[in-house]
C-alpha cells in the first residue's frame, strides 16, 4: 500500500478517539442547539413547529427578564472580573515575597477555590442572613441598621458578586503565583541596580511579563462570569424579582423549570455568541500586545 496513505490513515486513527468525543459531546450539541432554536418547544400534546427567528425577536421585544439578566450579567462581568483579577494579582505579589507565614497565607487565599461553589454559597448565606448573620452582627456592633443583603434588589446582585470575587480571586492568584515564580529573581536585581523602584519594576517588568497569564485568566474569568449558576441557585434563586438573575441561570430556569427547551436553546445560542465574540476579541486584540516567552 502507498506509504503516504498509510501515514495519513495512521494519523487519522490517532485523532479518532478525541474526534469522536468532541463531535459527540461538543459539536453535535452545539449544532443541534442552534437548529432547535428555530422551532417551538414540542410538548407531549402539541408538536414543534417552525418559528424561524421568532425566539430571537421575542428576546428583544417581549422578554423584559431576558434584557434584565443580560444587563445583570454584563454588570456582573464588568465588576467581578477586574476586581477578582486585581485582587488575585495583589495577593500573588504579596505572597510571592519572602515573608513569615507565607505558606499559610497562600493556603488561606487558595482555600475558597477548593470549596465547592455550593458550600461557599452556604457559608455566605450565613454571613448575609438578616439579624443573626455575621455581617449584620458586625453592622449591629457599630450601631448600623439591619441590611437584608440577599432580600433587597439593591444589594442582592452585589452580594452575589462579592462571593464570586472572593472565590475566583484565590483561583487566579495561583496562576499569577506560578507566573511570578518563573520570573528569574535576577531581573528584579538588575532593575534594582538600575535604580528602579519596586513600583516601577512591577509596572514596567512584572506586569508585561504576566500578560500571557492575564490573558489566560481573563478568558477564564469572562467565561466564568457568563456561566455562573451554582451560587445563584443556592443563594437567591435569581430573586428578588430577577434582581440577581444571570443569563445562564435564566437558561436553566427556561430549560429545566419551564421546560421551554427550544427558547432555552435560543438563549444558549446568544450566550455562546457572546462568549465566542469576547474570546475572539481578547485573543486577537490582546495577543498582539503580549510578550510570550
Amino acid at each position: 500500500m502507498d506509504r503516504r496513505l498509510l501515514t495519513t490513515l495512521y494519523a487519522w486513527l490517532l485523532v479518532l478517539p478525541a474526534m469522536v468525543l468532541l463531535v459527540a459531546f461538543t459539536h453535535y450539541p452545539t449544532v443541534a442547539t442552534f437548529w432547535a432554536s428555530f422551532f417551538s418547544t414540542a410538548r407531549g400534546r402539541r408538536p414543534a413547529n417552525f418559528l424561524g427567528l421568532d425566539h430571537y425577536r421575542r428576546m428583544i421585544t417581549d422578554d423584559p427578564v431576558f434584557l434584565q439578566v443580560v444587563w445583570n450579567n454584563f454588570l456582573y462581568a464588568l465588576v467581578t472580573i477586574p476586581l477578582s483579577i486585581g485582587i488575585a494579582l495583589l495577593m500573588a505579589l504579596w505572597v510571592n515575597e519572602r515573608l513569615a507565614g507565607r505558606g499559610f497565607l497562600r493556603m488561606a487565599y487558595f482555600t475558597p477555590t477548593v470549596l465547592p461553589m455550593v458550600a461557599a454559597a452556604n457559608i455566605w448565606l450565613f454571613f448575609y442572613t438578616p439579624g443573626f448573620g455575621l455581617l449584620n452582627q458586625i453592622i449591629a456592633l457599630f450601631g448600623g441598621p439591619e441590611v437584608n443583603f440577599l432580600g433587597s434588589p439593591e444589594t442582592a446582585l452585589w452580594s452575589v458578586m462579592a462571593v464570586s470575587v472572593w472565590k475566583e480571586a484565590g483561583f487566579f492568584m495561583i496562576f499569577y503565583l506560578a507566573a511570578l515564580q518563573s520570573i528569574p529573581p535576577s531581573l528584579k536585581e538588575a532593575a534594582k541596580l538600575e535604580g528602579a523602584s519596586d513600583f516601577h519594576f512591577v509596572r514596567r517588568i512584572v506586569l508585561p511579563l504576566l500578560m500571557p497569564t492575564t490573558l489566560f485568566v481573563l478568558v477564564n474569568a469572562v467565561i466564568g462570569a457568563f456561566r455562573v449558576v451554582d451560587h445563584i441557585v443556592a443563594m437567591t434563586g435569581g430573586g428578588p424579582s430577577n434582581a440577581s438573575s444571570l443569563l445562564l441561570f435564566y437558561i436553566y430556569e427556561t430549560g429545566f423549570k419551564f421546560w421551554d427547551t427550544s427558547y432555552a436553546a435560543a438563549l444558549t445560542v446568544v450566550l455562546l455568541a457572546v462568549l465566542i465574540t469576547v474570546s475572539v476579541l481578547q485573543v486577537t486584540v490582546l495577543d498582539k500586545r503580549i510578550h510570550y516567552r
Binding site: 428578588p240 434582581a243 430556569e253 419551564f258
Partner: peptide, 21 residues
C-alpha cells in the same frame, strides 16, 4: 399550564412590590 413560568411571573411581581420596586 406552563405552571412554573406563570408562577415565576407572579413571584417576580410579588417580590417587586414587597421590595418597593
Amino acid at each position: 399550564h406552563e405552571n412554573q413560568r406563570v408562577t415565576k411571573v407572579f413571584n417576580d411581581g410579588l417580590q417587586a412590590a414587597i421590595t418597593g420596586a
